[in-house]
Design a protein around this nucleic acid. Structure first.
Lengths: 119, 119
DNA sequence: CTGGATCCCTATCGATACTG
DNA sequence: CAGTATCGATAGGGATCCAG
């Protein structure tokens, strides 16, 4: 299902945009990406960082993100096999592209939204 | 429920980010915002633009977006009451802040992300 | 035309239990 | 530690009907 489309889309800008939003808009996805960005590399690290996420969802989202090329999964064949997760360049770039959102949040957080409409 | 949180959040950057993502990550929301940005002002216009959306969901999302201060609802008391929708400055700014996502999509779209994982 | 109210179904998610 | 499998609860979302 997902990824809504618009009528008479002139360019694929819209689709890029919508699919990217859809991607990172998935529940937990953004938080996971952020946790990885912050330095978490282990499954359990991320699980501990992202409050309230379940094993299942973390595994599911992680798999999705790996499939989308945003996260890289590395297996270190030590005695007890270690698994490391990390952002791919693509994933890191996505987070970077999302930075303006942070500014946006700060910019309009204080402003009473009605002040704009009420001239 | 939503808006996941991270442990030991140093600043509210994370929360701003996560709540913004959560906001626009809602199904249809981004597409609706885009339709409004493109010039649609009527309920039926947006419904026609956003492929597959139902009356109910459009009404629900529109109400949410208005509540979030991203969309402005104007009632024109003509004979058959007219209702106009449009982005608020805040909403327009949000879309602007999402622009880098478009670039991101184009930048990494060609790169075969699966090549890394694919066998 | 613009939406509110219902019904109902499905996908999604959480918890638990189990395996390598 | 790093998951997978199963199951049950829930709420998101679609279709339909109705009202202003």
């Amino acid at each position: 299902m997902h990824i809504p489309t618009l009528r008479h889309i002139d360019d694929d800008q819209c689709r890029h945009f919508l699919s990217a939003v859809e991607l990172v808009g998935q529940r937990w996805s953004a938080a996971i990406l952020l946790a990885l960005h912050r330095g978490d590399t282990r499954f359990s690290d991320v699980r501990a960082s992202v409050i309230g996420i379940s094993d299942r969802m973390l595994a599911v989202r992680l798999k999705e993100l790996v499939g989308d090329g945003l996260v890289e999964r590395t297996i270190i064949p030590t005695t007890p096999v270690q698994v490391r997760y990390g952002l791919t360049p693509r994933g890191a770039d996505l987070l970077g592209s999302l930075q303006p959102l942070v500014q946006w949040g700060q910019r309009w957080n204080d402003q009473p939204a009605e002040a704009a409409t009420a001239s």
